[in-house]
Every structure is written in structure tokens, then in C-alpha cells.
Amino acid sequence: MDFRTLRAFVEVVRQGGFSQAAKAVFATQSTISKAVKQLEEEIGAPLLDRIGHRSLLTPVGEVVYRRGVRLLADRDDLIAELDEIRGLKRGVLKLGLPPVGSATLFAPLFAVYRRRYPGIEVRLAEYGSDELEERLRAGEIDFAGALLPTSAEFEWQEVRHEPLVALVPVGNPLSVESRLTLADLRQTPLILFDSGFTLNRIILDATRRAGFEPDIVARSSQIDFMVQLVAAGLGVAFLPRLIAAQRPDPAVRQVLLDEPGTEWIMAMCWRRGAFLSEAAKAWLALVGESISRPDTSV
């Protein structure tokens, strides 16, 4: 059913005649007459009983008019809602972020995004990298914060590039070094993140390249707890330099990890070729701004 013919018919009823309806929709009377006739032919029954200069609704016309008014109202609401979404007055942004680094990198961006687009609802999911990638593949989230390298099925935009530091207990002979390699830590117990964290794979792949399997004494998803385990002398942990700098501890020394292939490169990823809503495009643009202009306070 053509909305134009339906609107012409509804206006004839509302305005009380064809000439009045033509003025209301800025059309000629013959255009309105043709539209109503086309609608009657499509439905297969007369909608108006024309008596002289008057037109009364037939029983079929009453049903079409009643439903038509609602359909046209819904159509107008739909157009208005789509205009709001296109204008970023409404919409939903679904983000998946890893626990490590998200507060530092993305909390300031959330604040800017919220100020710019207060009508956009942000739905946040926080998981390890493996779970985030699965949710991204399933289309449950628009973007995932992930460490590079990532799957070729995703497009990505780099957010931050940081070296790793080894968190070494003060008193350990290695704590006085300015740089460490993983070979230097061959005999040292390690404290790693829980399984599913890409940072774990980065460390374990590097230890294998160095020719040894590490002694893993603890795993956790809580950065502060891991720092305290190091402070207690349990072993050595690893964090991006940016994140470690925010968690100083007098019992822990932060030593640069001088190991190729262990850089912490955070990126914003999305499905290759996926549709990006206006809300999603606005977030990606903001991420790009944060790279070229790290101060996101404005």
C-alpha cells in the first residue's frame, strides 16, 4: 500500500472533501481524486459513497480510515525517530572492553562522548580478550578493545602503544636492573592474568621463544591484587607501563621489559565490513581524536 494514496484518502475524510484535501497537501484536486481511486482499486472496494458534493465513508472506508490514521502516525513517528538517530539525539552504542587499561584509556572518552551525545545509551561489557572477540563475532557488541595482533576478520584502529614493565619485589637482585629480558627471569616465578587475557599469550609466547616454560605461581584478573602479590615477594608480574605507573608501591620496583614482541598495543576493533551506526561512527571518530590529541577534556 502506497502511503501517498493512503494520506490523500485520510485528508479527504479529515478535510471534508477533495478540494479541501488538495489544499491541505499542496496538490491538485485531480491528483487527490486519482490517488483515492488508486487506493480503492488496490483494496478492491469503494471507500467513499459520493452523494452530490458530499462523500461519506463506506463500511470498508471506515476501517481503512481508522487503520490508516494509525499507520500514518506510526510512519511519521518512525521518520522522526530515524532523524533523531541520524542526528545522534538517540541511539545505542555497545562496547566491549578488557579490564586492563580500560579505566585509564576509555573513561575520559566516555565523559566526552556523553557530553557530546547525551541521548546515546552506552551499553558496556567487560571481559577478557577471548570472550570479547566471540561477542564481537556474534554481533553482540559494536566494538571491542583488544590487544594487537588480532584476528584478520576484524578491522581496527590503534589506541595506545606501550612497552611492558616487570613488577619485581624490592630486595630481589633483579630489582636494581634498569632493563630485563625474559631470559633474565627464567628462574623467577611469574604472576600472570587469568586465562583468556591476551597479555598472558604475549608473555607465554615470548618465554617459549626464549626457550623455557615459566613457573606460574598465581593467576588473577585483579591488577591491584597482583601488585600486592609481587609486594609480598611471591613473584614477578607484568603490566603496560601506563597502567603500572598509576599503581606505585614502595615494595615493588618497575623495570622496563626489553623483549621484542611484547609491546602492549591496544586497539578498537570491529567486524570487517560490518554496518556501523551513526552512534558507532561517532565513537570511532572520538577515538581517532584521542590519538591525534590525547587531551580529551574538551
Rank of each mutant, 00 (worst) to 15 (best):
Q29K: 03
L95P: 06
E133M: 04
L56I: 15
E278C: 10
P250A: 01
V298M: 15
K89F: 02
I265Y: 06
R253L: 08
A8Y: 00
A24Q: 07
G52P: 02
L47S: 02
S30W: 10
I141S: 03
I79D: 01
A138N: 12
S178E: 11
Q15Y: 02
D224W: 15
Q254Y: 11
G68W: 02
L256V: 10
E140L: 05
E41D: 10
V13M: 00
G61H: 05
F154M: 03
D76P: 05
A111F: 06
R137A: 04
R135P: 14
D184R: 01
T104K: 15
D249N: 09
T188R: 03
R115I: 00
Y113A: 04
A285H: 11
P173N: 11
P163M: 10
E11L: 06
L190C: 07
A21P: 07
S297A: 09
I202C: 04
I223W: 11
D130E: 14
D249W: 00
L234Y: 07
L78T: 00
Q254T: 09
E121T: 11
R67L: 07
R50E: 13
T207I: 11
T28H: 01
V217C: 08
I85K: 09
S195F: 11
L39P: 11
G91M: 08
M226I: 12
A166V: 13
A111L: 12
Q222D: 10
E126F: 09
R241T: 13
L229F: 12
G68E: 07
V236D: 07
Q38A: 14
K34F: 05
E153H: 07
E153Q: 14
S277M: 01
G288Q: 13
Q15T: 04
E263P: 05
N200T: 09
H161R: 09
N172H: 09
F154Y: 03
L71E: 06
L136N: 05
A279F: 00
S277D: 00
V298G: 05
S102H: 13
D2V: 08
D142W: 01
T104N: 02
G288I: 15
W264P: 14
S195C: 14
I202G: 05
I265R: 05
A21S: 01
Q222W: 04
L82Y: 02
K23W: 09
Y127S: 04
L276P: 01
L204H: 14
L182H: 10
E42C: 08
A144L: 06
I120E: 13
H53Y: 03
A244S: 06
E278V: 05
Q228A: 11
F18S: 15
L284D: 08
L124Q: 13
G16Y: 01
E263R: 15
W270Q: 08
I291C: 08
F18C: 14
P163R: 07
G288Y: 14
V168A: 08
S221Y: 07
P214G: 13
E158W: 03
E213I: 08
V36N: 06
I202A: 06
I191V: 15
Q15P: 06
E153T: 14
I191H: 04
M226D: 09
S30Y: 07
E289I: 15
I223S: 15
G139P: 10
G61A: 00
E126R: 13
V236L: 06
L88W: 04
L105K: 01
P118I: 09
E263G: 00
L174E: 09
L48Y: 07
E81A: 08
A111R: 13
P149T: 15
I120D: 05
